[in-house]
Design a protein around this nucleic acid. Sequence first.
DNA 1: AGCTCCTATGCATTCGTATTCACGCGAAGG
DNA 2: CCTTCGCGTGAATACGAATGCATAGGAGCT
Lengths: 335, 335
Amino acid sequence: MATSKDIARIAGVSQATVSRVLQNMDNVDESTRQRVLDALRETGYVPNLQARAMRMRRSGLIGVVTGRLTNPFYPELLDALAEEITSAGLRMALWTTDEPASSTVAVQAIQGSAIDGLIFTTATSKDPALRQAVAQQLPIVLVNRSIARLQCDQVTSDNVAGGRLVAEYFLAHGRTSVAVVGGDDIISTSRERRRGFTKAFAQQGIEIPAHRQRKCDFTHDAARKVGLELLGSDDRPAAVFCVNDLVAFGVQDAAHQLGIAVPDTLWIAGYDDIPMAAWDRIDMTSVRQPIDELAKLAVDTLVRRIKKHDMPFSHRRFSAELMVRGSTGWAPAHD
Amino acid sequence: MATSKDIARIAGVSQATVSRVLQNMDNVDESTRQRVLDALRETGYVPNLQARAMRMRRSGLIGVVTGRLTNPFYPELLDALAEEITSAGLRMALWTTDEPASSTVAVQAIQGSAIDGLIFTTATSKDPALRQAVAQQLPIVLVNRSIARLQCDQVTSDNVAGGRLVAEYFLAHGRTSVAVVGGDDIISTSRERRRGFTKAFAQQGIEIPAHRQRKCDFTHDAARKVGLELLGSDDRPAAVFCVNDLVAFGVQDAAHQLGIAVPDTLWIAGYDDIPMAAWDRIDMTSVRQPIDELAKLAVDTLVRRIKKHDMPFSHRRFSAELMVRGSTGWAPAHD
DNA sequence: AGCTCCTATGCATTCGTATTCACGCGAAGG
DNA sequence: CCTTCGCGTGAATACGAATGCATAGGAGCT
C-alpha cells in the first residue's frame, strides 16, 4: 500500500504538502495540488486510517451496543442508526450483548480510543461499565431506553404516553377488564409502558389485579406460555396490553390455540410496531415509535458531544403513535 | 488517560519494560513485573488501541457487510457472527448496504487498515469493490452467498440441495402442479434454490411453465402481490416454493385473503427457517441452514487467512435441512 | 535598491505502542 | 583473574499522517 511519503516522492513534493492536499487546505499552489492529485489517483492511494486516527485523536468509529437481534425492533433501530452513521461519514462498530447488557469491552474501546463515542440501545441502570463510562464523562448517548438521573444524553420516545394511548383506546371502547403482559422493571421501556397503561386505568378508578399483571421474557415462546395461563381460566380479560410485539404475537397465538376469537372476545395490543405487526394474518394493533427520528437525533447528539465535551446533557423524548389494526377490532377495507 | 510512559514513570522502569509486561513476555524479572502490574492496576490503564494497531499492523476489527436487516435472516446470521467474533477476542465493524451491495467504504477500510478483514453476507458478482478487493488479495470471506470462480474463501450451505429437498417432498406427496416464487438471478442463494427445485422436477419429466416461475423482491409486500396474481386465476398450483421465508409469508397471506385453504388445497414452503416460521399462526415449512456453523467457520477461516496470506482458498458447503410444518400438511400434536 | 509582507513549501515533531539493538552486570568456566 | 555467556533492562526507532515553525522567493512599496 502506498503511503503519503510515496505520493510525495512521486509528485516531487514533501509529505507535508501531500497531507495538505489530502486535508483540502487552501494554502497549496494549484499546479502542485494537481501533481499531487495525479499521483494519488495513479497509485490508488488510500490513507492509513490508523495513523490518521492516532494523530487526529479521532477514529471516525461510532460504537453501538445493542441486545440480541432476535427482537426485530433492534434490527430496525440498528438499520436506522447505521444509515445515520454512514451518512455522517463515520463507521459503526457493533456489540450485541445478552441482557442485562454488560458492555465492558465497548467501554474499553472508547477508553482505548478505538471508537469516538458509544450509543446504547439497551442500557440498564445496573450496568457497571456504563456507570463508569458516564463517570469518566466519555461521549455516550442512550437511545430507546433511559435511565433517570444518569448524567448523559438520552433520546427516547414517551413510553408512558404510549402505554396510556393503549389504555385510553381500550377504555373508550368499553374494554375495562384488562391484563398487561411482559416486562421487567429493570428495563425502562417496559416499566414505563406498563406504568402509563395502569395509571390511565387507575385514573378511571380501575385497579388491575396482580394476577392480571404478568411479567415474562421478551420472546414469542415465553409469551405464549403466559398467554395460555392467563387466558386459560374462565376469568379471562377482555383486552391484553403487551409491552412489546413479540409478546403480543405470543399471546395472540395462545388465544388462537385456545379457540378464543380475536378481536371478538379478546383484544390484543403490542408495542414497537415491528414490520410483522402489519402482516395480514397477524394484523396487530401496536404503538409506533419514530425510529428514524430517534436514530437521527441520537447520532447527531453523539457527534456534537464528541466535538464539544462541555455541553449540558440533553434528554429528548419523542411521542409515539397508536396504530390500530384488526387485533383490536379495526377492519381493513381490502383493495 | 494514562499511557504506557506514565506507567513506566510510576513503576520506575522504562516504557519498553511496560510494553514487555503488557505483552506477557517472559524476559522480565518477576519483581519488576509486579511493580508494573501494580502501576497498571492503580491507574486503571487501558492501552491505546490505535497506537497498538498502528505498530502491530493489526486492528483487531473484523468488518461485516450485510444487507438491510429487514429480512430477519440477516439479524440471525449477524448475531451468530458477532458471537464468534467477540469470543475470538476481536471486535466487529458493520456496514449495512442496499442491494445490490456496493461495499466501497468497507473495502477502503481494509485498505486503510482500519479493519483486518471482511466478511460479506450479501455478495454479488457485480460488486466492483468486492472484485477489486479480491484482486488485491485482501483477507475476505464470503458467507451465505457464493460467487463461482472468485478467488476467495467461501462458506455457504448447499442451496441447490435445499431446493431439491422441497421438490422431493412435494413430489413424494403428489403435489406436481407447482410454482416457484421470488429471487433474482444475480443473487446466488435464490438462483441455486430455484435451480435445485426446478431440476428435481425436470428429472421427473415435469417442466414448470414460465408463468409459474415468478421473480419478486424479498419482501412480504411484494410477495403478497405476486401471490395474489399467481393464486387468483383458476389455473392455480397445488404447491408453491418460495426462495425465502418473507416471500413465503407474503404468499401465505395472499392465499388467506383469497380464501384458499392452506394446506388443504395449497401447500407453501419457504427457506431460511427464520424464527417466525415456527409461530403457530404461520407454521411454515422451511429449509434450515446451520447458521451457527456457517458463522463459526466464516470467522475461523477469516482469522486464519489474516494470519497466513498464502493458503489455498477454501469453499465449504454445509448441508441444509427441511423443517416440515403445517403449511405442507404436517399437524402438530399440541401439548 | 532596500525593505516589508505574503504565499508556498519543507523540516521536524508528535501521537502511543512494540520491538530491535546495545549494554551492564553477575555467574560460570578456563 | 580474565573471558564468555545470558539475563534483564533502557535507549532509540518505526509505524503513517497531521501540523507548528521556519524559510525561500516573489510581489509591492518607498
